[in-house]
Design a protein around this nucleic acid. Sequence first.
DNA 1: GGAAACCACAGGCCTCCCCTATGGTTGTGA
DNA 2: TCACAACCATAGGGGAGGCCTGTGGTTTCC
Lengths: 309, 309
Amino acid sequence: MVVTVLSLHQLTCFLATYEQGSLTAAAEELGYAQPSVSEQIRSLEKSLGVQLFRRVGRGVVPTTVADTLRPHAERVLAAVEEAQQSVQRVKSLETGTIRFGMFGTARLYAGAGLVADVLSRYPGVRVELIGQNSMDVQEDLRRGRLEAAMIAVPSVNSEGLEVTPIARDELVYISRDPARLETPVTAHRLALASLVMPETTWRADDSTRKVLRQMLHETGRNPQTRIEVEDVETAVELVGMGYADSVVPKGAALQLLPRLAPGAGWASLRPRQYDTFAIVHRAGATLSIAAQLMIELATARIRAIADPL
Amino acid sequence: MVVTVLSLHQLTCFLATYEQGSLTAAAEELGYAQPSVSEQIRSLEKSLGVQLFRRVGRGVVPTTVADTLRPHAERVLAAVEEAQQSVQRVKSLETGTIRFGMFGTARLYAGAGLVADVLSRYPGVRVELIGQNSMDVQEDLRRGRLEAAMIAVPSVNSEGLEVTPIARDELVYISRDPARLETPVTAHRLALASLVMPETTWRADDSTRKVLRQMLHETGRNPQTRIEVEDVETAVELVGMGYADSVVPKGAALQLLPRLAPGAGWASLRPRQYDTFAIVHRAGATLSIAAQLMIELATARIRAIADPL
DNA sequence: GGAAACCACAGGCCTCCCCTATGGTTGTGA
DNA sequence: TCACAACCATAGGGGAGGCCTGTGGTTTCC
């Protein structure tokens, strides 16, 4: 990398001197003493190896080299000013990118509204909602690629992360057969059911599955899935077509059943089970204004749908 | 003027860190110790009021603010680089402006050749030959608008200026009447002559006139002019038309007579009189390379025409 | 000729820069 | 699981540079 031999300070003094035609006037404009500006100009001349001003009795006169340097100096200072302003604009959320982590299901029924909330307040920003699954969101948080996220709690390995639960969402059994929905679904019935479950790739870490495994494990049974798919919409559609039943967060059920499985309904589990949503970020991190905003808005959105904690 | 809160050093460290993804690697690239870069980044973050990097266990990860800042930082450093290079190009005479003072008559028969000399060696430069008359060239020198000049000596008020005579040019009497050219022209004959003289505006300071006044003063006479014009060419043309005679530097006579006054000729004065050409610049000034070049070339040109000193 | 304006220089204080040394944390591999 | 390696933060010190006040020299103007 090229070594920088001049400083912004020197350029500032140079421009002020050029415009004022006097070191004293330049110093006054900049709020310095005259020898300070004099020294800056001298050091600039020395480092460039050229004379920039001819010292005449009254004031100083720029040389042709100074004429050449001037527009470049102005460009440099303008670029610096531009850089500072761009950062300040990002800081005040006039512009810039807001990145927030959110796992699949939550994004499903809060994502669009959340983005709308942000954009209605700060029309200039870019918004990125990152993450298909709780696990890779956690990974992004740990790696520093994400500052904060909303995540499903049972699957959180909280090591090094600060987790703040904000709401819980009941897990409900969905089916097209009304008979299976008349009473709450026990672990026994669940173990016998023919299930379609989403999040195949993350089956080991998916929080809903973890809850179910725990529930069945207490009765000595193993969970069964007849069909494995990736996204909740497909699972719900299959329920609507009668190929299997499923267990999904109640918020997802309420939103998706009318649209994708009009003939199906839902019932609670017995005992009731919950996914817990939490805000997660690196332990000890000081959150940016943007992250605080996203946390506030996402919390409000989720609490409007799920049960606040 | 807006106060600059950031430094080029900080931006350099920022960019290196951004690209390397590591403070240690950035320090190595820049040739600093790791804490130095760490401090620069921290101070930059503090002065901007934003976090630029998230410190994760291994390395650092840029925030979205850093993403925003990066292109601006690159632009600033590129502009600095550009500024430095432009100055160096001027310094090496690849480009830039060379300004040199030269009074009317000398420029008349050395100007074009001098410009050609410069451009053949340094095709990229701009050349400015400044000055109609010795007096305003001196004024420009004193005011610092000119670094150096070639000037006619008798009219030099050398106060504060350093004068180096390099050649002298005889003043000759020109006329269309061959009879007046048979013998050298004495002060007596000069006093009686009907003269056309150039440099009307500068009549009090024109060096040729000063020489003539001195010559006539010694014989108790005053110079007479029948016609006053501004430029030598007009004077010579009038001589060619027979309206008057004139006194001009021999170099000018040799160049202009064939073209503007084919029927006219010249004769020496008695005693012979001379304009002396000298290089002039501010006393104690250190001359730039460009000025040294111009002095060298102008001296060579003038000495080829006038008598070297 | 004197006053005013302006730049250069000197000396001192203080900040900032950069270093080395060291400790804490994270990630990795045996 | 434990030790090692990588990396960043902190502390303390030396040196350079920035900015100040005070002063002298030169030019300009009245």
